[in-house]
Design a protein around this nucleic acid. Sequence first.
DNA 1: GCTTGTGAAGACCTTCACAGCA
DNA 2: TGCTGTGAAGGTCTTCACAAGC
Lengths: 221, 221
Amino acid sequence: MAGRSVARQAGPGGVPEVVVMRLPQYIRVLSSLMAQGVNIVSSQRLGEILQVTPAQIRKDLSYFGRFGKQGRGYRVRHLIMELKEIMGLDRRWNVVLVGVGRLGRAVLSYPGFAPEGFHVVAAFDADRRIIGRTVGNLKVQPVEELDETVMERGIGIGIVGVPGPHAQGVVDRLVGAGVKAILNYAPIAAQAPDGVKVRNVDPVLALQTMTFYLLGEDDEA
Amino acid sequence: MAGRSVARQAGPGGVPEVVVMRLPQYIRVLSSLMAQGVNIVSSQRLGEILQVTPAQIRKDLSYFGRFGKQGRGYRVRHLIMELKEIMGLDRRWNVVLVGVGRLGRAVLSYPGFAPEGFHVVAAFDADRRIIGRTVGNLKVQPVEELDETVMERGIGIGIVGVPGPHAQGVVDRLVGAGVKAILNYAPIAAQAPDGVKVRNVDPVLALQTMTFYLLGEDDEA
DNA sequence: GCTTGTGAAGACCTTCACAGCA
DNA sequence: TGCTGTGAAGGTCTTCACAAGC
């Protein structure tokens, strides 16, 4: 490949977070198209699939560079590679897991992480009965060793798989250890300082944001 | 495909969707406060906990009514009840599950749904080897019976727990059956017509939206 | 002809700031 | 005095519309 002049120019204020949230979706769809043998795609077509306007796709991409060819569209394979590089998805990410109960074990056995470059390389728990056991190739370590492991291995991502009441404490601990991104499975609105990203995996919350739209003509005050 | 790309639908009363997304969070925090014995809370304090501005909380609530007392704040118990009613979270919701493989069984055994009023009352699969088996009190039905069950029982919510390649087909089927809200566990950007809400539970996507912020001073032209 | 990239316009959401009331 | 509720201001994001280029 030629020029590596992909400008991740965080302008004044940087790239809007909504844009960063959409790019992985674009990558997904593009990958699916590539698997179908599609070589070129227009913003029009992409927009139809993703149900967003073509202008939005073009504007989103324009934050990072110029990837298309006028009159033709985007080369699917090329755009995937560019976007993956921009998002840091062209590399391996080591991840730590805290909480090896029901939820944590489900995380460890989830087959979707590794193919996308996310590898759980250490697991921690506070429960003496679990510590030392081997779960999915990993020996469960005491949470006290979290800091050391995170720093030694330069890990930036943590997964919280403990029950709700313990989750904020675990988040604090991960933040203290230097983690900069947290995937939280606990049903709480975890707080983290600026500079630490938190994303929640919370099916109940997801359902709760939809029921509003299911209400018919009900009571009115 | 025609460009009828409508992107903004206002819910009942024209409430912004972002607001609807936040209210369940408010309910969570309020419930936690109530459990701690807090009776009254100000938008200031709520904002500190949720890390949003007090003005946003007050504005959000103002879409639905006037729930506070000037000079005092909000009665926690009262506000929870009001918000739950507004969001339709003061009632029971019956839900159907499609896909009773690894993912689907995890959904069935997840203990978090029922306490919040979401009850999986029927489970479907296309695999003959699974159909007829009993999983978590439910007899797995053939997907062919989906329409009938959804219509008969007036079900509005469906959960998609099938592998990615089958997910869109299942979404279409749920939509056809009349479901108006879909919780999708498959790693795809599922498409549904206007009027049908889709929320994704997708840990990989969540991770992929954070790595961007973990990139240091790397390649730069 | 067709599609990108992009200033400008517009829509939407958030924050401000203060009147009003307990 | 303290805090809500809200019109208005301010920002941010989305969409438009068109010049440029394949």
